[in-house]
């Protein structure tokens, strides 16, 4: 094969390794999320759905990273990288070929550019995540500081009470987590309703839900415009609410929890602006009131979805790192 022919061939072959991760990125970034959001089992089994959303998000970051890497990497180096991964990582370093890669001199920069491009998605997400954690932590610290000054600890409720007419119940997660109830909420809730509401908030604290919510918010910010990012941002908090509802339902009746939700919501001054989580409360109440919506075992699809998503991720990794699979288009 002549040199010029080799170059032409390389031009056309440069991108073929980028196709599997790109396909997965499109699938998990745009197609699967819509299917998952409109599926019936997700809200029935919120814990499973949360795992699936997390796997989709991680798959997107991984596949984007690999796609960028392969788009910029010359085909020859791409193959060598595959061999490097195979022999140095999978087979304990026997016959480890050297990196940096032995491509034509001008391609050296391209290799480093490819590695830099591969880092873009994970680094961007990590940066937004750290910022999100820190700002949430700062807001919580400020809130907790004022709360300590004006709230009164009620050991028999295991909660802090704020003197205010509007009914409000929330939890302040973090290092010194606490459940906060306004005096307005104590006034409108019955004893059973209050117990249900407190149980719901304690489930948030026990499950450390704030970490997942921060991660979902960061994911939404890091990949704007992507259907997966938008849906992770709205679905993850809703699914966590449902998880906490389920936990509260172990201790109280469906009617108690549903009416408690209504009593707190209707007691607050109506907010005519578009509320961020508005319709979610309606979904939650309908779900709480429908027995099979919370207690049925996960459907076969719920169990199939997780291994499928995991297998998809493994497939991408394999396609980009095992020569036996990846060499077929160039031979």
């Amino acid at each position: 094969m002549t040199d010029s022919l080799g170059h032409v061939r390389e031009l056309f072959l440069v991108n073929h390794h980028a196709l599997p991760p790109l396909t997965v990125a499109i699938a998990v970034g745009a197609l699967l999320p819509k299917a998952l959001a409109s599926s019936h089992w997700a809200h029935r089994t919120p814990r499973t759905a949360l795992v699936v959303w997390s796997v989709l998000a991680l798959s997107l970051i991984t596949s984007l990273s690999l796609a960028f890497l392969q788009l910029l990497l010359p085909a020859a180096d791409s193959h060598q990288l595959s061999r490097f991964v195979e022999s140095c990582i999978f087979f304990d370093g026997a016959d480890c070929p050297p990196l940096p890669l032995n491509s034509p001199a001008d391609a050296g920069i391209r290799v480093w550019a490819a590695f830099a491009a591969a880092a873009v998605a994970p680094v961007a997400f990590t940066a937004v995540l750290v910022r999100e954690f820190l700002s949430a932590k700062r807001r919580r610290a400020r809130h907790g500081e004022l709360l300590r000054l004006v709230g009164s600890r009620q050991p028999e409720l295991r909660a802090t009470v704020l003197q205010h007419d509007a009914p409000a119940v929330y939890c302040l997660p973090g290092r010194a987590p606490q459940v906060v109830v306004s005096s307005g909420a104590l006034r409108v809730l019955t004893e059973q309703q209050l117990a249900a509401v407190l149980e719901h908030e304690r489930a948030h604290i026990a499950g450390r839900h704030h970490l997942l919510i921060a991660a979902a918010a960061a994911f939404g910010t890091a990949f704007p415009g992507l259907p997966l990012a938008h849906l992770v941002r709205t679905e993850v908090p809703l699914l966590l609410e449902m998880t906490a509802d389920d936990r509260a339902l172990r201790r109280c009746s469906r009617g108690t929890l549903a009416t408690a939700l209504y009593v707190v919501a209707s007691g607050q001054a109506p907010h005519s602006a578009v509320a961020a989580g508005g319709p979610s409360a309606v979904l939650r109440v309908r779900r709480i009131l429908t027995p099979h919506a919370t207690s049925s075992p996960a459907s076969w699809r719920a169990f199939a979805a997780f291994p499928a998503a995991a297998a998809l991720t493994l497939f991408v990794m394999a396609c980009c790192s095992v020569p036996g699979i990846t060499d077929w288009p160039s031979k």
């Binding site: 809130h143 119940v169 929330y170 939890c171 979610s280």
Partner: peptide, 10 residues
Amino acid sequence: AALQRFVEHM
């Protein structure tokens, strides 16, 4: 991410 409310303002 800072607080978790029992129900959002609706």
